[in-house]
Design a protein around this nucleic acid. Structure first.
Lengths: 231, 231
DNA sequence: GTTCCTTAGTGTAATAAATACACCTTATAT
DNA sequence: ATATAAGGTGTATTTATTACACTAAGGAAC
């Protein structure tokens, strides 16, 4: 094992799908590549993992370089290692997603030398991406669509204080379907994971809605994922 | 990219959790290592991925070398790449699971030079494993426990023809809880994914049960995974 | 062939969850 | 004061989940 032949060495990257929710639209962060191959194409933020770096750390580093954000929870969702996925040979990539709170978008400053620019793109308007990134995106999007139905991941995309309508809109955008307002509220409130605030929405030209917070403590106490065959 | 420095090269393995169901017990295949590090310890079947090999192919190869089986569906479930997981430096491993049909166990012949032996071990009796394989096992087991509640993966572990009681036993072993016979049958049959055969169990010293088959065609037509917020 | 043993196989009532559906209220803008 | 736009609310129906116990069938033992 100490003397493993070189043919076992591999090239290794991390790619990230960074979701944000802004003005009612679900978006992801894309970079325009400034390097061959695929110079000028859009791609998911990602880069090579160093030999002495843990995958998780690499993912955090890439998130930081793409958005300026630190300490965001990222979930690994799949590893891609087909032969044809990179024109220069087999490159294995571990894919992560992150959901971030765009507080007016001002704090997110993408920084990357291998990229001409970074842009937020509505998930409905993603162009064809470099390498197999289109496939990676589809798989990641499917994952969160699936996950949102049984885990409270949506809150990470919203401002800390939000209205039930904003929350419902986010669910509708991710699930790509209309939901019934009364049933949505009844169900969401029945989970008992939200804290109702004494505050109301401001700056709207119609009746202001109550604001809510996601309540981690209540969540831990009250939320139990139900599965079939529970008894 | 063509001239990437060597510090981007990494060592890369695939590890497999191979589940089998035998005499009412859920088991996995373990090998006893014959190489340092962890010589003499039990470990998940696994090995290095070649530089020119797709991950999927490597997983298939390792399954073949461990069991003599080909063409079994394997699902990738997580990639482990922490710094301390291997004593000789950072090694990244992509973990897969497979569920195989032990038709009397005769056809499964583990073959591996780096292993002293391969043994089937009840999931309730897994010893401490080499590297972080105990953790990998726990994560994979959790995955199938979760998945069995909404996907028909249990059938892959059973003989082609099985009784409802056998199916229920398998669910009970994986979920680690007793289920109600009437409710289990009602629900399972309501999915309409089984074909009732004209045959009965043989060689039992009590009333023989009807045999069923998993019906792929019915499954495709009738099975719709239900999620919350469907409307 | 009678009895014993073991598992197969079945139905219903009660409870809980999901769905369908429409109107009045409140805040701001004009 | 009026118009506009979203906020906020309840109930009846349907569907799914749960709890629960006895008879039927087949082979084994005598």
């Amino acid at each position: 094992m100490e003397n493993l032949p070189a043919h076992f060495d591999s090239l290794f990257t991390v790619d990230c799908i960074i979701f944000g929710f802004d003005e009612g639209e679900l978006k992801i962060l894309l970079i325009e590549r400034n390097e061959d191959p695929f110079r000028g194409w859009f791609a998911l933020p990602g880069y090579f993992v160093e030999k002495t770096e843990a995958i998780e750390s690499a993912a955090q580093r890439i998130l930081y370089e793409s958005t300026g954000l630190k300490g965001i929870y990222m979930e690994q969702f799949y590893t891609f290692g087909a032969l044809g996925r990179h024109p220069q040979g087999r490159v294995i990539t571990v894919a992560y997603y992150a959901m971030i709170r765009l507080t007016g978008q001002k704090d997110v400053k993408p920084v990357s030398d291998f990229a001409r620019q970074a842009v937020w793109v509505n998930v409905k308007d993603i162009p064809e991406l470099a390498f197999d990134h289109s496939r990676i995106f589809r798989k990641g999007f499917e994952k969160i669509r699936n996950k949102i139905s049984y885990q409270p991941i949506a809150f990470e995309l919203l401002p800390e204080k939000f209205t039930l309508t904003q929350l419902q809109n986010l669910y509708e955008v991710i699930l790509n379907k209309k939901l019934d307002k009364r049933n949505f509220r009844k169900k969401m409130l029945s989970y008992d994971i939200l804290k109702e605030l004494d505050e109301k929405q401001k700056g709207v030209s119609y009746r202001a809605a109550k604001l809510y917070k996601f309540d981690k403590r209540k969540f831990a106490k009250n939320f139990h994922k139900e599965l079939s065959f529970t008894k």
